[in-house]
Design a protein around this nucleic acid. Structure first.
Length: 879
RNA sequence: GGGCGCAUAGCUCAGCUGGGAGAGCGCCUGCCUUACAAGCAGGAUGUCGGAGGUUCAAGUCCUUCUGCGCCCACCA
């Protein structure tokens, strides 16, 4: 084996897995299923850190469950991302002098399919680089034949049930993309703006005015009323009169409506039913006309009179000027208020009255709410469940039509006679008059198809074996940004069409931020390309880093420096394996047996505790803690202690039966513990563990195999050995004590010293481990005396649990310093004892604390007291 | 306007259902000890944001304040 791991092995290992069909999920399998559907990345995307994190989590869970013996399916695929892709392609075409209009609908769509061919596979290839064990043979696309079939089916069924309807409503309109968008696609930003105060003349009352305030003066062109509060005495008598809008020379009624807050502004509100949701409602109550004064591109239309053709901004400016010149402008106050922007392009969204398609949410939302409240659906943190519930409780009908070409075209057909037909396949003629039909030009919101993802990818509406076996899925892993867009919608569609919640657990993970804690974004240019990181460090390192040292739900900053500890650890593991393999070359015993000596029993006890811990943490989706436990065990307990302790046994090549037995026991324990640890690490660092596992398996004389499908270790409580653990803890404490003194006395490692130990009880801890202590502490001899032997003269004494240790370092003894060291030790022990005493003397503690805890405190006190007595003895000896 | 998250060692962060403050990095000292210098050994470092409260016991639970960050929302 090389001295360092070669990250370039990753490609070959992945190829091997793919070739062997290791990721394949079999619907005919008798094994219990475990399913995750991938959040389908957009075909506009290439892998970014967020994807790397998201998919690492999924792959860890899938690999864990696969090893546990589940029939695991990780369903992959991509999303057509209607508006996002369309915008991108339009931009690319523009550079070649082409446009949507010049190409026509069919020509344009051809370009989009070409785009999908070219770029749709990019991120899939990148996911493979990351190590994702998806069943690629099942890969789907939101616009493939099957998904499209599902989309049509759902649309028609919901339409026939009256849950999809077409209506004239105020929708969020993006004047740049010239399409409607849903509530979930509007981002509200607080902006510094102005509150403008104006007045309109009262009709037929010379010199009388009604003043009002607005943040959007341009909408005055569409005003159809002025509203005041019914209880506002200031306006008593005005209701029923008319005000006059000079710009368009229109008389509008002054109405009374409880919507108006008399405390705000001037107490009077201009009403623009066609451009404001509140005003829309008010308008409905008072039968006000709705005057749409904007074109689809946001410019003023013919209803704006002289303002026709101006942009929103220009119209605003000109209106203020005109009102000023008419003496109707009062003042402007600065006002910070929230503005809705289109999440794709940042353009300020305009509420516009449009004929659009909607999904009625009332009935659909309820089962989705119930799924959460009944516990069928769980979020990894309660707060995400609250966000989910809050949205559903306040949900409004979902606007699903988009004025785009890239997407599932709405299966609605219009006849000149006014008849409307909705059908999965285009009807030949109007069923009423036999006339020619025209299909609705619009497409569906991209989330309409992704809402069906968990069951449509499994073959729905066909009753496939896959659907039967793998639905409902188990876990959904995503970030909090798309709870509304996606999670909510998958749940209500799943409830509606499958009658089952699409997944049991939703894991919402944090965002990967840059090193300053900002979101990575194109505009900031602070993104870090995961592929470059993988190129430099390997996917294992990136994966380990991403899940280490962070709670899964909290945001995590990406530092290149954080990669090094991950890399260093994997290198450590690599070298530990190298060491074990080197020392197993002459091994001829059986690898299936357990250890026999204290150290062996200790590490096996620790290993079994680790297996239990890691399994529980992975089950609980606490990946960071699981990773940390594995790393700590391998590095600290296994490498730094067990491997070091066992070296004398390995290096003793005596031919005696005892020496051989001891060596073999160490060898097979090394092999066993390391192999198991490698398995535990596999879900997190799949590549390196594959190589290591295979190498270790060869030693056992096993056929070359794969760790991927090896059986997840089961913890075995019969290996728990509290006595061995206590014993080794004492050895560690002794060794650390000796090392500390050596460092303090500047004894170089090359200088071996004689160590004498006087145990305080009859346990054989120190005799049993004397050769290990010798190696670990740099001793040329370790002599263990009988418990109450006299202390050797001229030695430095170290008091530890279970013994006093003497280092005969005559020449190095400085009694002043010794006294200082022992005094420090004494006061430390006294502090501990007094802390425990104050606890034990507290009647509340002894009465109410768990008895086991009280006992443990007593035991500790006893140990400290023994040590303190020894330290005092030593101090007396020094004099 | 409503809701949520974070505040722990110089830096980045772990600390689950309350029971002797942790890791990595950085820093200091000594080591090329034949698995690993991407390493080994030893060491220093914290009124766990402030203030109250509950409890025998609070980094952990409650209240409140401060400072960051995020989400939701149709206040002209």
């Amino acid at each position: 084996m090389n001295k360092t791991y070669d990250k370039n092995r990753e490609r070959d290992i992945y190829a091997k897995w793919e070739k062997e069909g290791s990721f394949r999920a079999d619907a005919a399998s008798g094994k219990e299923p475990y399913t995750i559907v991938i959040p389908p990345p957009n075909i506009t995307a290439k892998l970014h850190m967020g994807h790397a994190f998201n998919n690492t989590i999924q792959d860890i869970l899938i690999r864990f469950k696969r090893m546990q013996g589940f029939e695991t399916l990780w369903m992959p695929g991509t999303d057509h991302a209607a508006i996002a892709t369309e915008v991108l392609v339009i931009k690319a075409l523009a550079e070649q002098g082409m446009s949507k209009d010049s190409l026509g609908r069919d020509g344009f769509l051809e370009k989009l399919w070409e785009w999908n061919e070219l770029y749709g596979g990019t991120i899939i290839r990148q996911l493979k680089t990351l190590g994702c064990s998806c069943d690629w043979e099942k890969q789907r696309f939101t616009m493939d034949e099957g998904l499209s079939e599902a989309v049509l089916d759902v649309f028609v069924r919901l339409y026939n049930e009256g849950k999809i309807y077409r209506g004239e409503r105020l929708v969020n309109w993006c004047v740049k993309c010239e399409t409607s968008i849903s509530d979930a696609e509007v981002e509200h930003e607080d902006r510094e703006g102005n509150l403008y105060y104006f007045k309109y003349p009262i009709d037929g009352a010379e010199g009388e005015y009604i003043s009002f305030a607005t943040t959007r003066p341009e909408t005055m062109l569409g005003d159809t009323a002025i509203a005041v509060s019914p209880e506002d005495s200031r306006f008593a008598g005005l209701a029923g009169k008319f005000a006059h809008i000079p710009m368009v020379n229109r008389k509008i009624p002054i109405i009374a409506d409880t919507y108006v807050d008399p405390e705000y502004g001037t107490g009077a509100v201009k009403i623009t039913p066609a451009h404001d949701p509140n005003d829309f409602e008010v308008g409905n109550r008072h039968n006000l006309p709705r005057i749409n004064m904007l074109n689809d591109d946001g410019t003023v239309n013919e209803n704006g009179g002289a303002y026709e053709g101006l942009t929103r901004e220009a119209a605003r400016k000109k209106i203020i000027e005109e009102m000023t010149s008419l003496g109707l402008y009062i003042k402007t106050d600065a006002l910070s208020h929230s503005v809705g922007e289109h999440d794709r392009c940042g353009t300020i969204v305009e509420p516009l009255q449009k004929l659009q398609w909607f999904v009625a949410m009332d009935e659909l939302a309820k089962p989705a709410l119930d799924a959460y409240t009944s516990g069928k659906l769980k979020f990894n943190r309660e707060r995400f469940g609250k966000i989910y519930t809050h949205w559903l409780e306040n949900i409004r009908d979902w606007c699903i039509s988009r004025q785009l070409w890239w997407g599932h075209r709405i299966p609605a057909y219009y006849c000149d006679c006014g008849h409307l037909m909705v059908a999965k396949t285009a009807p030949d003629a109007c069923e009423k008059c036999g006339g020619k039909l025209t299909q609705d030009p619009d497409v569906l919101d991209t989330w309409f198809s992704s809402a069906l993802w968990p069951f449509a990818t499994l073959g729905w509406p066909e009753k496939t074996a896959e659907l039967e076996k793998f639905y409902p899925t188990d876990v959904l892993v995503t970030d909090r940004g798309i709870i509304f867009h996606w999670v909510v919608r998958m749940v209500f569609m799943g409830e509606k069409f499958m009658d089952k919640t699409p997944f049991k657990d939703v894991i919402i993970h944090g965002t990967v931020l840059d090193e300053q804690g900002r979101k990575m974004s194109k505009s900031l240019g602070n993104g870090i390309d995961p592929l470059e990181i993988i190129e430099e460090f390997g996917a294992d390192v990136l994966r380990l880093m991403l899940v280490s040292g962070n709670a899964i739900d909290s945001d995590t900053r990406f530092f290149r420096e954080r990669l090094e500890p991950a890399r260093n650890f994997l290198n450590k593991l690599w070298n530990a394996t190298r060491f074990v393999l080197m020392n197993l070359e002459d091994y001829t015993g059986e690898l299936e047996q357990g250890g026999t000596e204290v150290a062996d029993n200790w590490i096996l006890s620790r290993l079994n505790a680790l297996v239990k811990d890691v399994t529980e943490k992975l089950e609980a989706h606490e990946l960071g803690i699981a990773a940390q436990k594995i790393v700590d065990f391998i590095w600290d307990e296994f490498c730094d202690w067990y491997v070091e302790m066992v070296k004398p046994r390995l290096y003793n090549k005596e031919d005696s039966a005892a020496a051989k037995a001891s060596r073999f026991a160490a060898q097979h324990t090394l092999w066993d513990v390391l192999s198991t640890s490698v398995q535990l690490l596999h879900p997190i660092a799949p590549f390196i563990t594959e190589d290591l596992f295979v190498e270790l398996a060869k030693v056992a004389g096993n056929e070359p195999t794969t760790v991927m499908h090896s059986r997840w270790p089961a913890h075995d409580e019969s290996f728990y050995d509290p006595a061995a653990e206590k014993s080794i803890e004492r050895v560690k404490e002794a060794v650390r004590g000796i090392r500390a003194v050596r460092t303090e006395k500047q004894v170089p490692p090359s200088q071996k010293i004689a160590v004498e130990i006087i145990p305080s009880d009859t346990s054989d801890t120190f005799t049993a481990n004397s050769s290990a202590i010798a190696l670990l502490a740099g001793a040329n001899s370790v002599t263990v005396h009988a418990p109450s032997s006299p202390a050797p003269a001229g030695a430095i004494s170290i008091v530890v649990s279970g013994a006093t240790i003497y280092l005969p370092l005559d020449s190095l003894i400085d009694s002043e310093k010794e006294r200082a060291r022992l005094t420090k030790e004494q006061s430390k022990l006294e502090q501990e004892i007094s802390r425990i005493d104050s606890k034990l003397s507290n009647p509340g503690f002894t009465a109410k604390a768990p008895p086991a805890l009280v006992e443990a405190e007593k035991e500790k006190r006893e140990n400290f007291a023994t040590m303190l007595a020894k330290v005092k003895d030593e101090l007396l000896t020094i004099g």
